[in-house]
Write a protein that binds this DNA or RNA. Sequence first.
DNA 1: CAGTGGTCTAGACCACCCT
DNA 2: GGGTGGTCTAGACCACTGA
Lengths: 254, 254
Amino acid sequence: MGTQQLEAVPEPKYWHLRTVLSEALDSEFAVGEILPNERDLAARFGVARATLRQALEQLELEGRLHRRRGVGTTVAPPRMGVAVGADGQAWPGGGGDDSWQSVDCTLAVPPAAVATALVIPRGHAVYTVRRSRVSHGQPVAAELLYVPQSSVPDLTAIDAPSEAARARAVLRELQRLELEGQDRAVELGSARADDAKELDRLPGAPVLVVTTRFFAEGRTAALSVATYRADTCRLTFGAAGGVEIHHGPERRAS
Amino acid sequence: MGTQQLEAVPEPKYWHLRTVLSEALDSEFAVGEILPNERDLAARFGVARATLRQALEQLELEGRLHRRRGVGTTVAPPRMGVAVGADGQAWPGGGGDDSWQSVDCTLAVPPAAVATALVIPRGHAVYTVRRSRVSHGQPVAAELLYVPQSSVPDLTAIDAPSEAARARAVLRELQRLELEGQDRAVELGSARADDAKELDRLPGAPVLVVTTRFFAEGRTAALSVATYRADTCRLTFGAAGGVEIHHGPERRAS
DNA sequence: CAGTGGTCTAGACCACCCT
DNA sequence: GGGTGGTCTAGACCACTGA
């Protein structure tokens, strides 16, 4: 009799909590609504705050909650679809795409992994264009675009009035090349300190890293590494818009 | 004088720890090597075990570590590139793709969100094909493919000898339709209990959810929801192979 | 069985936001 | 200043693995 017989399947508390909260979010809360604070919620469910937080972290990972220090926990809107490679192949910054905004541009030695992908010697400097992407009024992605000097040989003197202008000049030169193909990969990562700041998140926040290689003149002419907020974004490929599949029931019908 | 002046930038301990461990992994450990256990590591760094675990969780999220209960923590190999939509558009299971294996097939009512995407009434049953994907000898993805009965009208009697055979029959029928287009989205999710089991992970493990809509005969003919292990997979699009960009230095050169 | 990672607790203090 | 979420501690017990 000392043992409880509830939970024949010893599901972890935080996982059960996640399910309970998830269902409550579906039925009892509206988007943007503020949840009770963590201490109250923990007391209400009779668990330690750390356990409650584990459940909240899950829900935040799934894009259901939005937590801000000093403010509170709110119900997040459904993830926004963000087009990545909307229509076939295109250079970055081309074709009237105004969702990206150039921030700055430096001539610097890239990380070794980037040098390898670009097939250039280590320690060789490349143009590093920094851009940020905004969607529905909030930052969704930060990108580093690496362009070897050899890809933009005609880039005129560095007399641009600002860093942003210099970045645009690099993009403009790049678009003069004929794009022969591109290559994309998506993986999970965690935001570095600088990206986190730009994305308005804490360091270590989960991000979707989209790496794109651009081929021209028979070689890799540029490499883009874009980090998207994983909590708020659903990356869409192909036709615009994308599918709306969200947090269905835990078990599907049998 | 009561305050310590170490750490002028009050970086969280677990984040600093993550960086230190990450560098140690680069320089002092080989892939597959076993790390000291968590209690020892925590003692060595002078932190609580929970803090050490926060750092390990980050590294696992980034695909650098592999942790198994009852076994230990090992250094993970680089993520494997997994082709998703290798070349243009194709029905699932077509074209000699042997990376997917049909598991079973039921006729069941799908989650409401799926019914919405398929534009069918709620409570309407669809064929639900379950497949699993193996790469390099380990499971990487679990898929649920929803096929409305109207997409496979000629499917003959349900006399298949096994669930798997029935699944293949549905796929075969599907491939008789002319594929007019498809639509893909990628987002972060957490593994449900059943997916987790199939992927050899614990529930809640981070996964990349790839949702694909298949269009034929002017409507959505099928919907695929595939969950990929986020820790071991890098999803590649376009040309085969993909890019190899991994855990570069925390700060890039200026 | 001993050893591992996974879960959970009950506290404490800190960084941040808003008023 | 008061309230929020973020970090951290020092324990405890559990579930699982493999010898």
